[in-house]
């Protein structure tokens, strides 16, 4: 497989020798570097199927490791450790322990869809990234990420009323992630925003926080969506070999905590 942009060998597994004599032959300069040998016992051969069972992950098997996704990636340009091509490789090889080394950054995909646009194999890597991030959370390897909290807060509102109200999203998100609402830059933004606003608009914005915007007669849609989401969650957990009881509350469901 052509792997150009990231070495599969971690630096701590490289054994280099200043001068090396093997079987009485000085091989210095020719064979001075070795990879630490190991017996691999931690392959998870189901890993690719598990990712493929989660929303967005279904096309992972098509990947031929060209690296176009990583080459195009917005987040990779900020952090070279963010490497979709490499993670897809690890998943397809079943190298779960290796994947877990990057568990804290996988959720940072910004969904710009550059990877999906350039992918010559229709892998839809953006979806695969979301599937990996969910897998880490469902398996308990990683706490719910800020991104997943945001998705939950947002989707709960959509399922509840058919629409969202941005002020409520911001408040709920900061509360759920334990952050103070009064962030310096937010306060400054609001100051600049209200400097020129007419009173009528301010009143309308205030009203929206009291009277939530909602889609009329949404009840039947809400019930149908809640049933569907609950069924999908059971299916996903089963595909990952987890029991029926969810570890964390997911949106819009009757048993959601809080």
């Amino acid at each position: 497989m052509p792997i150009h942009e990231k070495s599969l060998i971690r630096p701590e597994n490289l054994e280099t020798h200043e001068s090396l004599v093997l079987d009485d032959v000085d091989v210095s300069g020719h064979w001075s570097t070795f990879i630490s040998p190991r017996v691999v016992t931690d392959y998870n051969e189901a890993l690719e199927d598990e990712i493929a069972a989660l929303p967005g992950g279904q096309n992972i098997h098509r990947c031929w490791q060209c690296g176009s996704c990583t080459n195009a990636c917005t987040v990779n340009a900020l952090n070279p450790d963010f490497n979709p091509r490499f993670w897809i490789y690890l998943v397809r090889m079943g190298m779960e322990e290796e994947l877990l080394r990057d568990k804290e950054i996988i959720w940072q995909c910004v969904s710009c869809h550059k990877c999906t646009t350039v992918c010559p194999r229709d892998v839809e890597p953006e979806g695969v990234m979301k599937a990996m991030a969910h897998w880490l959370e469902l398996k308990g390897h990683q706490a719910t990420s800020p991104s997943s909290h945001f998705d939950d807060v947002f989707s709960e509102q959509v399922i509840e009323t058919g629409k969202i109200e941005e002020g409520r999203i911001v408040r709920d998100f900061f509360r759920r992630t334990g952050q103070p609402l009064m962030q310096d830059w937010l306060v400054e933004m609001i100051k600049r925003l209200i400097r020129h606003l007419p009173v009528t608009l301010l009143a309308r914005m205030g009203l929206a926080t009291l009277v939530r915007p909602r889609t009329r007669a949404w009840g039947p849609a809400r019930a149908a969506i809640q049933d569907y989401v609950a069924e999908e969650r059971v299916r996903q957990r089963a595909a990952l070999g987890l029991d029926g009881e969810p570890g964390s509350a997911r949106p819009g469901l009757p048993d959601a905590a809080e």
Partner: peptide, 8 residues
Amino acid sequence: MEVKNIDP
């Protein structure tokens, strides 16, 4: 950009 991450 959020609901698709729950279910496309």
